[in-house]
Design a protein around this nucleic acid. Structure first.
Length: 504
RNA sequence: CGGGGCGUAGCGCAGUUUGGUAGCGCGCUUGGUUCGGGACCAAGAGGCCGGAGGUUCAAAUCCUCUCGCUCCGACCA
């Protein structure tokens, strides 16, 4: 499309160009700045993250720079999770990025799971290393090595440690934020005295994830257990938070694992219990990553760009002054006062750049997802009012200036609530239930979404669905019984209901 | 690993068929006029045409080799 536009342009004469066609063309260009979701969802996603300046591609495939706008978002998300981790008794620490090959190889299932995607360090300076080092794809191995020395007595338990760091997984196909070769995340690693306590921890953190993602990111989810096929390499059980993107595909937004004693046994993490017996600890690990930013974009974003929920938005409102020649100084003075005044109640940004027109700024801030825009021009000054525009639904109202300090915080709550509500409605509309395989196949082809259905538990049935439809079992929800109990694929009786979906 | 596509200014591209002084849009710089949904005028800056070899009086363009990126598939959370 762009190409033909350029060709057309080149064929017209200079005179014709100057006669106004340029103007028209520029307007069209802007509409094209973000590819509409309906035209090409993947392209929409890429356009949004680039236009909103969340990231930029690195010279190495699968890597990216997280730009200030994207990183600020991560910082806000991080803050919310970190607070909850501390509230549930965890402490932060930091472990090394390089893991000796020998350590990674201790847990058989674990190596096997990660081997295809580890990055190796084989040289230090000029020296070829005796034992190559693995760049952490996750830190179980190195942390367990430390824990084997740190844990001696039952009095040392529980160990409740979290770390914020980067990890590297050599991915074959990558997408910004959703799957990159390096990403930022948090990994909690805990040790417990009993199996029950570890299980309780794994489920507790799963709930922390679910609640935080819902409250702060305004993303509803379904939680449950992973099937053996989908569980973490080396875990006893894996639990997951699954969110539904606006194209009907599911995204794993967070996972929590009960590691059982698999790692404790191979890394020799033992404690002397009160009964004078040496026992292996029971462990958990759990993580969320910068993938949440991808979820945020795909759950809330629209054809104009990002929509950030107020609770995690870097700026909750942006003030755009309308600077006319006549009233320039008056308006500037007024918005500066307003900005100072609002700083006490919300995170506010004054955009007083003079090189951009108000219209340009509207589009720019909308693209970047700021929840509220406040317009202040000469007409507003006369009336002692300002214009307040919501990003989530476009609603535009004129508000008396004095009321803003009470109005805006309330508006932020409303927007947060409405965004969650909208996402929840979408989730519900796109969660279907049944056990008709033909209908299921059709749905996975078209609207997608979640499909809640009985499953006999046989990995072969799970595999067949994947081959036929590319859909996988996202999770086995807790306490979900269906009236109908014949497996979606075979005729066997099903113990559990599961959520199927095509996933990222 | 298999198949397709692309490397020309910061970004997006045209120019390659038919060899002949390297272009367009956006962005950037300076100055001015504007400012309630991506304003306009004027003047500028910016290129080893991915790399190496060859053919030719002459190569972005033709030939050979090579490197990189990307999409689809396979593999994988």
């Amino acid at each position: 499309m762009l190409i033909s536009t350029n060709n057309d342009l080149k064929r017209v004469t200079d005179v014709e160009q100057k006669a106004g066609r340029e103007n028209n063309n520029q307007q069209k260009e802007f509409v094209k700045a973000i590819t509409p979701k309906a035209v090409d969802y993947s392209q929409w996603y890429i356009d949004v993250i680039l236009k909103a300046k969340l990231m930029d591609y690195a010279p190495v495939k699968g890597f990216m720079a997280i730009r200030p706008a994207g990183y600020a978002l991560w910082e806000k998300i991080k803050e919310q999770f970190d607070r909850r981790f501390k509230e549930t008794g965890h402490e932060n620490a930091y472990f090394p990025m390089f893991i000796p090959q020998e350590l990674l190889e201790k847990e058989a299932e674990h190596v096997e799971g990660f081997a295809p995607e580890v990055a190796w360090v084989t040289k230090g300076g000029d020296e070829i290393l005796n034992e190559p080092l693995v760049v952490r794809p996750t830190s179980e191995a190195i942390i367990c090595d430390f824990y084997s020395r740190w844990v001696q007595s039952w009095r040392d338990l529980p160990v409740l440690i979290n770390q914020w760091c980067n990890v590297v997984r050599w991915e074959k196909s990558t997408r910004p934020f959703l799957r990159t070769s390096e990403f930022l995340w948090q990994e909690g690693h805990t040790c417990h005295r009993t199996e029950e306590e570890a299980e309780e921890e794994a489920l507790k953190m799963l709930e922390v994830y679910r609640e935080c993602i819902e409250t702060e990111l305004a993303i509803p989810s379904v939680v449950g257990r992973k099937t053996d096929r989908e569980k973490f390499a080396g875990a006893l059980r894996t639990y997951t938070v699954e969110a539904l993107m606006s194209d009907g595909r599911a995204l794993q937004a967070g996972t929590s694992h009960n590691l059982g004693q698999h790692f404790a046994r191979v890394f020799d993490i033992k404690y002397l219990d009160q009964d004078d017996q040496l026992k292996y600890v029971w462990q958990t690990s759990w993580g969320v990553s910068t993938r949440l930013i991808g979820a945020l974009i795909m759950v809330h974003g629209d054809d104009r760009g990002l929509k950030i929920p107020p609770r995690i938005s870097t700026y909750q409102a942006v003030i755009v002054p309308i600077l006319t020649k006549k009233d320039r100084e008056k308006v500037l003075k007024s918005v500066r006062e307003l900005s100072d005044q609002l700083k006490d109640v919300i995170r506010v940004k004054l955009d007083d750049r003079e090189e951009y027109s108000p219209g340009w700024k509207y589009n720019d801030w909308e693209m970047r997802g700021v929840p509220v825009r406040i317009e202040v021009g000469p007409k507003d000054l006369e009336q002692g009012k300002v214009v307040v525009v919501r990003r989530d639904n476009g609603e535009k109202v004129s508000i008396v200036r004095e009321e803003l300090t009470t109005y805006l915080p309330r508006l932020m709550d409303d927007i947060q609530k409405d965004m969650l509500k909208k996402a929840l409605e979408f989730r519900e509309e796109n969660t279907r239930s049944g056990s008709d395989y033909e209908e299921f196949k059709k749905i996975m082809e078209t609207q997608r979404g979640f499909y809640l259905t009985p499953w006999c538990g046989d990995p072969e049935c799970e595999e067949k669905v994947k081959e036929d439809t590319k859909a996988t079992i996202r999770c086995i929800p807790f306490n979900k019984k269906l009236e109908h109990d014949t497996c979606l694929v075979c005729d066997k009786k099903a113990e559990n209901a599961v959520y199927f979906a095509r996933a990222y």
